[in-house]
Design a protein around this nucleic acid. Structure first.
Lengths: 218, 218
DNA sequence: GTCTATAATTCGATAGAC
DNA sequence: GTCTATCGAATTATAGAC
């Protein structure tokens, strides 16, 4: 008798359905980020999500569709800190904030960082187009912001691309190589003191070399 | 009638055998570094090495044995630049040389870098012990070298661990994220001008922030 | 040492009952 | 929407001839 229209406010069924899809995506992120697209099995993902494999394939019609769904949920979050870089800010504020936010992402979304890294290592077959268009334009835009800082003397000369790569590389390293860092330092970013030391040291090295020298410097 | 003793000088048979094993290891590195342990099939590796799958399994009795053989061949090469860091050198020379050598490795052994990264992302199940003992000791030793530089005023204060992580992260990034960098910059490290610009910018950012300020600085 | 043939699993995906 | 049952392909590894 009752018929649910697609545009209706989310009812119990639809909400439960979306919740189940999210549980599947979460489980898929955990396993894809550790074993890769081919290394993670639908059996294992369904098991971790608490659903049957058949049921998983009801919500995501193929393994690759599930993989893409997980990747797309990550991408925007990942580039948001880059988008936030603004010419109006001082380089000290903009770069300092960027470093902190990226280290926070490495702490709170390490699996997402690792899946992104895995996809890059494998040649990013599913993201290549996006990289060559959207990401390239974004980096060009922010490079001009950095060049503006250099032109008005608030940043010492540096190639903007290489600065951006250095910022990406150092901050993501704490998520992607977390095992190595924990084996050596015995700490993780979950430790507040280690987190602060990470942000502070990266910031000091990068900004210490790039901010103009004042007479106060020894 | 003729019997080959194990200690005999390498004859044609033994040389051919070793050459074939090396071809298999090379093919395995190429495919493991792109698809991971589970994602690369012995069929594909044997095919790329130009041998039959059965023959591959004659030389390496299991897939995991082959994987470990490839990993071990990488490890020493990879840590050699760290070992070369010497207290007798000036920090400018030691760190500058380290950056150049690591970027050379990222250029000439990108697949090895990526396989190492893959193994770390997956939790380094086969290297964990080695990390917690050998690598940890190596990093402690080099940290004391860095602390010595700071104590005698030839390096500004910085946490040695975070400096080492930053150097690792930025240099390896050019190998592990080569696809992303090529999509954005349109260049690779194979381009000599891009290679030099990479070394120079990383060096300038890191050393610019860490070397003591002189009166010549503006 | 190298091959063919095949054993023994595992995996992604589908069919069809309920 | 969810389940059981199962197909068909791919994969690691072994057996045995030469």
């Amino acid at each position: 008798m009752t018929s649910i229209t697609p545009a209706a406010p989310i009812g119990n069924r639809a909400a439960a359905s979306e919740a189940r899809k999210q549980r599947i995506r979460d489980a898929a992120l955990a396993l894809f980020s550790q074993f890769g697209l081919r290394g993670a099995s639908l059996d294992a993902i369904a098991d971790q999500a608490g659903v049957s494999k058949t049921n998983l394939l009801y919500y995501f019609p193929s393994k690759e569709k599930l993989y893409v769904a997980v990747l797309q949920q990550i991408l925007d979050t990942w580039l948001e800190p880059v988008r936030a870089i603004d010419a109006e800010q001082s380089p000290e504020t903009a770069i300092g904030d960027y470093i902190r936010i990226k280290v926070e992402l490495s702490r709170d979304h390490a699996q997402a960082s690792r899946l992104f890294c895995l996809e890059m290592i494998q040649g990013a077959p599913l993201l290549r187009e996006d990289l060559q268009s959207n990401l390239r334009l974004l980096v060009e835009e922010k490079s001009r912001v950095i060049e503006g800082w250099i032109a008005r003397g608030s940043l010492r000369p540096v190639d903007p691309h290489h600065l951006i790569y250095l910022l990406w590389g150092t901050t993501q390293h704490y998520a992607d190589f977390a095992v190595q860092i924990e084996a050596i330092s015995g700490r993780t970013l979950a430790d507040p003191a280690f987190f602060e030391a990470t942000v502070e040291n990266i910031t000091r090295i990068v900004l210490g070399g790039l901010l103009p020298r004042t007479n106060a410097d020894s």
